[in-house]
Design a protein around this nucleic acid. Structure first.
Lengths: 148, 148
DNA sequence: TTTACTGCAAAGGGTTTGCAACATG
DNA sequence: CATGTTGCAAACCCTTTGCAGTAAA
């Protein structure tokens, strides 16, 4: 991921501090793992990366980091929840491609014109429904290369 | 839902029979509940509709109905899984609007031109990624009318 | 020094499964 | 009648919570 890691780290610290939370030895590796992950990571993946960390702490830290706006919860397949760094920190707006078979999640970006066209269409949809559309999430289901 | 219920029912029976499964008293009410539901229903909603049914049977029947292509699993919020009748039976292609706050799910359709434009864009995305895009699912996250 | 945070283990809650009885084709 | 199906209850698995000790600011 081509992100300035230090700047990203500062962003996390700033957000934590702003909410009266601390930047601890248990949070740091979680963020680091999310930085190096090439897509939304499951909790068990994060736990496995650092056996030192207690599962419960990872759960709690992800909750805090989400609360603070540093990470985003990604709902993909039916089983596990996944997390990724918030776009506010990565400056990499993207959407998700979900494999309907195995549940793996990938990221993709839309070209600027496609993105704005889509946003326009969605805004119209939002007006005609009982939903306020903000395109906070656009997930697509397909089949990944590894699946039949 | 403006669907020919008898035809739909026949479709379910046909699919079950084709897979060597039986159309039973436990499956019928599940399908009926999905027909009357105005959107993807959670399993607990389905169980509550007919207290006669054992939870485990509802789970198993939904799995069978999905296997047979009669119902579709909808992944929405982080907690509960939802199910809806397969489009092959309802002939009502649609996408989903998910409330990012409370998790409620609504359906929506795209105008034909918007739909085909979107499909074109997605086909291009699929080619540039490791995914085979088939637009089997297009879920959008917004905020429902009932949430702040 | 205050109080957020951590680890451990136990509790929760939705989903799955084993098994014996039952019902469908 | 052969075998798919059902109910019940126990087993599972991921996630959450209580608590006492620890460590950030």
């Amino acid at each position: 991921m081509s992100v300035d890691v230090d700047e990203l780290h500062d962003g996390v610290v700033r957000r934590l501090a702003g909410a009266g939370r601390r930047h601890t030895s248990g949070r740091r590796p979680v963020v680091a793992a999310l930085v190096s992950a090439d897509g939304p990571a499951t909790i068990s993946e994060l736990v496995d990366l650092d056996v030192q960390l207690a599962q419960s702490s990872v759960y709690r830290n992800l909750a805090v980091l989400e609360e603070v706006g540093a990470v985003t919860r990604v709902v993909a397949h039916d089983d596990r929840v996944r997390f990724e760094l918030a776009e506010a920190l990565t400056h990499h707006p993207h959407h998700h491609l979900i494999c309907g078979n195995c549940g793996v999640v990938g990221d993709f970006e839309l070209a600027a014109d496609a993105e704005s066209a889509l946003r326009g269409a969605l805004a119209r949809i939002g007006r005609s429904t009982r939903f306020r559309m903000d395109l906070r999430r656009l997930d697509l289901l397909g089949t990944c290369a590894a699946c039949p």
